[in-house]
Design a protein around this nucleic acid. Sequence first.
DNA 1: CGTGCCGGGGG
DNA 2: CCCCCGGCACG
Length: 476
Amino acid sequence: MQARRLAKRSSMGSRRLSAAAPQVDAVRPPKPESAWRPPRREGSAAALEEEDEDEDVVVEVEEEEEEEEGGLGSAPPALAGHGKGPLRGSLKAANIKREMTFHAFQQEDVKSDISRKLPDQQFLLFTTKEEDLKTAETKKLNRAHEHEKENTRSVCLLEQKRKVVSSNIDVPPARKSLEELDMDKVTAAMVLTSLSTSPLVRSPPVRPNESLNGSWKEGGFVPSSTSSSGYWSWNAPSDQSNPSTPSPPLSADSFKAFRTPSQADDGIDEGEASNLLFDEPIPRKRKNSMKVMFKCLWKNCGKVLSTAAGIQKHIRTIHLGRVGESDYSDGEEDFYYTEIRLNTDSVADGLSSLSPVSPSLASPPSFPTQDTIRPETSCAKSETKVMTPLSRSAPTNLYLVHTDHAYQVSPTHNRAAGSGEQKQTHTVLSSPPRAAFGLRKPRGEGKKCRKVYGMENRDMWCTACRWKKACQRFID
DNA sequence: CGTGCCGGGGG
DNA sequence: CCCCCGGCACG
């Protein structure tokens, strides 16, 4: 046993050797030797080190980003062409790079994420950049169309990112009023088309992910989701980053959890949602909410959407198989769906009861050390977090599809229902106060030793991590 | 599919 | 205890 372990260790050591040699150095210039035989880090010392690493990452951001973008787009050779030497080594290095890149992104995300979190409403109030909005909107629309050709897009993404997200803002005021005023079915349908035809309905696993990636990378990509409901849009100018917004990992999660459901009525109480989100002292005055939803009666379907156009579209494309003529309706769909009403109050209740909780979870009192890492950590969250606004934005479709599938299709979602987050959704749906499932603990999010130090530096991990136990160094 | 970590080992 | 790891939940 001992022997085996030793052997393993040594083998690992050699691996580290090969990995750490030339390539790695190239990858992480700043702290080559520290990676060697670093003393156990504990306490404040660790903190310093941590920070250091953080910075390193930041430094990397620029180039890493570029590379990733390029690779993402359509130029895999770019990666290979990076001029890495031997195969093995380069592979290893590549891996490491991957990791680094991730960091970088996460970093980047903080910014965009924060800004994104700004509720459009608020943003509107500020009315700082009307013009930007305009252009942004146009952009967005275009993008929505281009959406299909995602590949080429990545380039733009980079630029946008650089331009500080502001260009990504799509809070189409005009759109909103327009849509609200003349609930033009056709328009809605068209809008919905892009959404429903793509993501969940068709190939649930693929599209959503894509869009997800796109969104958090690009920061401003919300075409499909935007189109779904027409309004709402979570992109905001980076400059507008809301300072008051607490963006701790947990809180974010919770937000997502009950925010999604609340969105069931397309953006109507969006304001509230956002208010809630930004814990604004809003006297929740709910126009006594009865949400009208439309349920597909097609056997084995049961999909529920919030707009007539929505299900019509759904029925048309999914059940009637009329894909091409997506925006044309001969009324046949009408036979296949029915109206249902949801009491939104329960939702509100759920929200109010839950929201106070999140803050507490939100700000876990942690040592300064953690704080330095915090942002980074929360970044990790951001990918999920980002998605939140997304699903929220595509309230009707995404959200509902979600629930539906939870019941009948996707096993994944079913399982997810058990998780801390999903359970809340569940609650809202069936509108019982709340059901706390005694399940596995949420799972510590955020970087743990493994992620932070990487496999190669396994001996830098905290013992717990090495033992595959709950990490003790980076506690959530 | 990678990651966090529980439960269950061996020494 | 200390040290691992199989395996599973979760994202």
